[in-house]
Design a protein around this nucleic acid. Structure first.
Length: 574
RNA sequence: UGUCUCAUGGUGUAAUGGUAGCACAUCAGUUUCUGAAUCUGCUUGUCUAGGUUCGAAUCCUAGUGAGACAACCA
């Protein structure tokens, strides 16, 4: 018994040592320190707070992994909270897609909350601030207020309405919510410091009027809506959030976050905001505004266009939840705002699919290969291993006959140095079949190759001793008599420059890659793909990883290329 | 000419005063019935100048560079 206990404690120690081997990111370090100091009674609570006004992208995935990851790691909880304080752009469509995407990534929230559920509490707090002489109604135009704000290097000037009597402020605040006042005519501002070096302290707006569109949850009950700065920290407080984690651009908001909470909070509990770097990836954009433009101007097919960095786009492209989470895990969290090479993302999906994807044959740009000495009408079944990285996946049979489709690029009459595919008088191996020797080709009047000819060596069938002969090239193929047509969509980077957001003088849309989508029709693929399910991943041998696009219908297969295989030959040619 | 934040190979990230390590990318080789994967190896880095210290990527000072902030967006 004692020995058993000792063993267990040793294991615990070892496990701890194992765990501490992987260094903590700075947020985890903060959390552990808070835990050691017994802050908030050792309770850990985070939240993921999207505004339901767009689709989640891979940048959100980074925040999601942080928010949910911290809760999971430290036995806390993470809630999903919709920051729905601005009805003009928000919609239930987004509420739903956001929940779907989080679940797809594999995270579970403790509760779903809405900032709109706190509208009454926030309203009451605003009234308290007015009564304390710390908030007032301004009736100047947005332009006037902006002008008075000054700029980061010159102080602002005070509003003429700043010292309005409390009773008048209370009456006008009520009026803001009556529906009788036009948008923009009245705002509630906090009375702080128009000369503050932090622009957010120059009497920030707490409430504004939005009449034009009912709220997707509260309907037309409210006309005056709280601003982010007045809603976010309080919502965190109401919910009992201990660590309010967000991205770096909110750093300058933190003093205001604390200031509002100071106005009413008791001293024994306090949510703390900490900021980490947001995700940027080369050759794409990570701004909701820009993505929305691409969608609205139909420069992409929608939020789920496989070229988009949205989670629904990546999913459709063939990315898996684990590949995205592994990617996020690799890039880490710091306060340095850099840009991640997209090749790391590509590596994450290749790494996974290499281990899991079934190998099949697909010929994208087919040309007929005729094995002249192969008996007419004969068909042989060949064994094809489903995944050489995973024996448990077994094998399947594929048919082989006199006429097969091969890749047009795999034949050259006058090849460059280093080419070891099909070329006259040279031998190549047909994957899972025979070694063949090219004997020539037939061209049409324009010199286009119509057919390629070869002779097979019957002794070299895969598995036979003779087949071990050293042959440099191995080609994929499909049986012309037994294959199906498919459409294949090849994707390239969406933009032609590494960082489209950095180009100041050019509109980012001018930097779109005109060749980001190539649709290839009449590709030939193995018949077994007929029964493949939407989003199922495959490796087309020698070409890359592909999945079934959800637009596929029976009889009309559509594949997306998730990512190509690495290709050192293509590199060498350059 | 303000406030805040940041600075480690090409990119990202570790080292928490004590041997600058890892991943991706690159290149070379190995292996291969996928020009993939595997395996091995190479190259490349602490922004600058001072200071503290036996010892500094790490602490201090100054400089340089970068980012965020001037929405009735979040």
């Amino acid at each position: 018994m004692i020995q058993k206990l000792l063993l267990f404690s040793n294991i615990a120690v070892l496990m701890e040592a194992e765990e501490t081997k992987k260094s903590l990111n700075f947020i985890e370090a903060i959390v552990e320190k808070d835990l050691q100091e017994g802050k908030n009674g050792g309770r850990i609570q985070t939240r993921f707070p999207p505004e339901p006004n767009g689709y989640l992208h891979i940048g959100h995935a980074k925040a999601i992994c942080m928010d949910f990851g911290i809760a999971e790691k430290y036995n806390g909880i993470c809630n999903l909270r919709f920051d729905d304080t601005n009805p003009t752009t928000e919609d239930v469509e987004y509420v739903n897609s956001i929940q779907e995407d989080i679940q797809w990534l594999g995270f579970k929230w403790a509760n779903v909350y809405y900032a709109s559920d706190y509208f009454q509490q926030l309203w009451d707090l605003a009234i308290k601030l007015i009564k304390d002489g710390k908030a007032y109604i301004d009736e100047q135009s947005a332009e006037e207020i902006a002008k008075q704000k000054g700029n980061p290097t010159t102080p602002g000037i005070e509003s003429p309405y700043r010292n309005r009597p409390i009773e008048e402020n209370l009456a006008l605040f009520e009026k803001m919510n009556s529906g009788d006042v036009k948008d923009g005519d009245l705002v509630l501002r906090a009375k702080i410091d128009m000369a503050s070096s932090n622009m957010h302290f120059r009497d920030p707006i707490m409430y504004r009027i939005i009449n034009n569109r009912p709220h997707h949850r509260t309907g037309s009950k409210w006309k005056a809506y709280p601003m982010y700065d007045f809603a976010h920290g309080q919502s965190d407080y109401f919910e009992g959030v201990t660590h309010s984690l967000c991205t770096l651009e909110f750093e300058v908001h933190r003093p205001l976050y604390d200031w509002f909470i100071d106005q009413f909070a008791n001293k024994d509990y306090r949510p703390r905001q900490n900021e980490f770097n947001r995700l940027n990836i080369t050759y794409t954009v990570m701004s909701k505004r820009k993505m929305l433009q691409l969608v609205q101007e139909k420069l992409v097919s929608g939020w789920d266009d496989p070229r988009m960095p949205t989670l629904c786009g990546l999913r459709r492209r063939g990315y898996t939840p684990t590949s995205i989470r592994n990617f996020i895990d690799k890039i880490g969290y710091t306060k340095y705002d850099g840009i991640i090479d997209v090749s790391l993302l590509e590596h994450s999906i290749r790494e996974e699919l290499n281990a899991t994807a079934t190998r099949v044959s697909g010929v994208l740009n087919p040309v007929k290969l005729i094995i002249t000495n192969y008996p007419e009408g004969k068909t042989e079944m060949m064994e094809a291993i489903n995944n050489p990285e995973d024996e448990t996946k077994g094998s399947r049979e594929i048919s082989f006959s006199k006429e097969i489709w091969m890749e047009r690029d795999d034949f050259m009459e006058n090849p460059p140095k280093g080419y070891f595919r099909m070329t006259p008088d040279k031998e190549v191996r047909l994957k899972n079949a025979y070694i063949v020797k090219c004997t020539g080709c037939k061209k049409d009047v324009n010199g286009e190759i119509e057919e390629v000819y070869c002779e097979y060596d019957p002794m070299t069938k895969s598995g036979m001793p003779e087949s071990n002969r050293k042959v440099k090239g191995t080609l994929h193929w499909v049986d012309a008599k037994n294959c199906i047509d498919a459409e294949v969509r090849l994707y390239d980077r969406l933009f032609i420059v590494e960082n489209p957001s950095e180009e100041k003088e050019k509109d980012f849309k001018e930097l779109l890659n005109p060749d980001s989508l190539k649709t290839v029709l009449n590709c030939k693929v193995e018949p077994c793909l007929q029964t493949a399910k939407p989003l199922e991943n495959f490796q087309f041998q020698r070409l890359g990883y592909f999945n079934i696009d959800p637009d596929s219908k029976k009889g009309k297969l559509i594949f997306n290329r998730t990512v190509s295989l690495k290709d050192s030959w293509a590199k060498e040619k350059k």
